[in-house]
C-alpha cells in the first residue's frame, strides 16, 4: 500500500473511532430553548447564540421547543445524540422540580451534563403602593394575625417563585393563601386588588414601581437589588432563602469531556461579550457564571429540598 493511501486509511479509521475529538463542532450547533419565542429563556438563548459566534467555528442556532413547562425541550436535549451538536438552556425548575411532578426521560442532575450556570433572574415580592403593609415584616405580622387571609399571586404552582414563597411560609410559620396565575398575570391581579401580595421578576414590575403603583417589599437573593435598594433581602430578615430562577447550559449525558470543554470555554467568553452584558442590563437579569460541577451540586441540593417541599405540598405525583 503506497504511503499516501495508508495515511488516508489511517486518518479515516481515526475519524470513525473518535470523530468529535478531531473536529468539534463540525456542523451548526442546535441550542434548544424550551420556552416560546419572546420569553426570558428565548432572549437569553438568542443573546448567547449571537455572543458566542466569535468563539466557535460554527454557528449556534436557537430552536424553540415550548410546552410542558419546559420539560419537552429539556427531554429533547437529554435524549439527543451526545456529540455536543445538540445542547439546551436548562432552567432550575425544569431540572430540579418537574421530575418530582411528572414522569420524564430524566430524573436527577446525573441524567444530563450541566456545562455551566449562565444567568439568574432575581425574585421580588411586592404589594400595591396603597397596601397597609409598609414592609415584609408588617406583611408577615399581618399574616400571622390573620391566618389564610392574605392572598399571594404567584406565576404557577411548582415554579421557583411559588416554592420560595412556600419556604418563607414554613420558616416564618405563617399561613397565606396562594393563588396561581399564568405568566405575569399576577401583576394586573394585584393592581386590581384580587390578591394582596405578588411575586415576579424585576423587569415587568419596574414600570409600575416607577409609576408609583407598586412597592417592592423584599427580594429573594443574597444581596439587595440595585433597583430596589430600600427592599431588604429575606436573608436580612432572618429567612435564608436566596434561590432565584437560573438558567444553565446543558448537554446530554455521555457528551465527551473534551466537547463539553470546548462549549464551556466558548460560552464563558460569550457571557463577557459587551453585547451580552448590555442585554443582561436591559432585561434586568444577572450574569451568574458557575462551573459545571458546581451547578450540578446546586441542582442536587435544589432537587432534594424542593422535592421534599413539593411532596409536603401535595404537588408531587403519588
Amino acid at each position: 500500500m503506497p504511503m499516501p493511501v495508508a495515511l488516508l486509511v489511517g486518518a479515516l479509521l481515526l475519524a470513525t473511532v473518535s470523530p468529535v475529538a478531531l473536529a468539534f463542532p463540525d456542523r451548526p450547533i442546535t441550542l434548544v430553548a424550551p420556552f416560546p419565542a419572546g420569553g426570558a429563556v428565548d432572549i437569553v438563548a438568542r443573546g448567547l447564540a449571537d455572543a458566542v459566534k466569535k468563539h466557535l467555528p460554527r454557528p449556534v442556532v436557537v430552536v424553540n421547543r415550548p410546552g410542558g413547562a419546559g420539560t419537552i425541550g429539556m427531554a429533547e436535549v437529554v435524549q439527543a445524540r451526545p456529540d455536543g451538536h445538540t445542547i439546551g438552556l436548562g432552567a432550575v425548575a425544569v431540572a430540579a422540580v418537574q421530575p418530582h411532578l411528572t414522569a420524564l426521560p430524566y430524573r436527577t442532575p446525573d441524567d444530563y451534563v450541566p456545562i455551566m450556570k449562565l444567568v439568574t433572574l432575581p425574585v421580588v415580592v411586592f404589594v400595591r403602593a396603597d397596601a397597609p403593609f409598609r414592609s415584609a415584616g408588617d406583611l408577615l405580622e399581618h399574616a400571622r394575625a390573620h391566618p389564610g387571609r392574605v392572598r399571594v399571586g404567584v406565576p404557577g404552582l411548582g415554579t421557583i417563585l411559588h416554592l420560595d414563597l412556600e419556604l418563607l411560609k414554613q420558616m416564618a410559620r405563617v399561613d397565606m393563601t396562594v393563588v396561581p396565575f399564568e405568566g405575569p398575570h399576577q401583576i394586573p391581579a394585584l393592581l386590581g386588588g384580587h390578591v394582596d401580595v405578588a411575586l415576579a421578576h424585576p423587569a415587568p414590575v419596574l414600570p409600575h414601581v416607577r409609576a408609583g403603583r407598586i412597592r417592592v417589599i423584599g427580594v429573594f437573593q443574597e444581596g439587595r437589588h440595585p433597583l430596589f435598594v430600600d427592599a431588604p433581602t429575606f436573608r436580612e430578615l432572618g429567612y435564608d432563602i436566596t434561590l432565584g430562577v437560573y438558567y444553565f447550559l446543558v448537554a446530554p449525558r455521555g457528551t465527551p469531556g473534551s466537547v463539553v470543554g470546548v462549549l464551556h470555554d466558548a460560552f464563558r467568553k460569550a457571557l463577557a461579550e459587551p453585547a451580552f452584558v448590555e442585554l443582561a442590563h436591559t432585561h434586568r437579569f444577572d450574569i451568574d457564571y458557575r462551573p459545571g460541577d458546581e451547578v450540578r451540586r446546586e441542582l442536587w441540593a435544589s432537587y432534594e429540598t424542593l422535592g421534599r417541599l413539593v411532596r409536603q405540598l401535595g404537588l408531587a405525583k403519588p
Binding site: 420569553g39 432572549i43 405568566g183 401583576i187 436591559t282
Partner: peptide, 28 residues
C-alpha cells in the same frame, strides 16, 4: 397600559418591545 400580554399574539408584540428594553406600563 399594563405591560401584560392578554393574548398569545400580543405576547409576541411585547417581546418585540422588551428585546429593545422597552417594558410597557402605566407610564408608556
Amino acid at each position: 397600559a399594563l405591560g401584560v400580554p392578554f393574548a398569545p399574539a400580543t405576547a409576541l408584540l411585547l417581546a418585540a418591545l422588551v428585546i429593545h428594553g422597552v417594558q410597557p406600563g402605566p407610564l408608556l
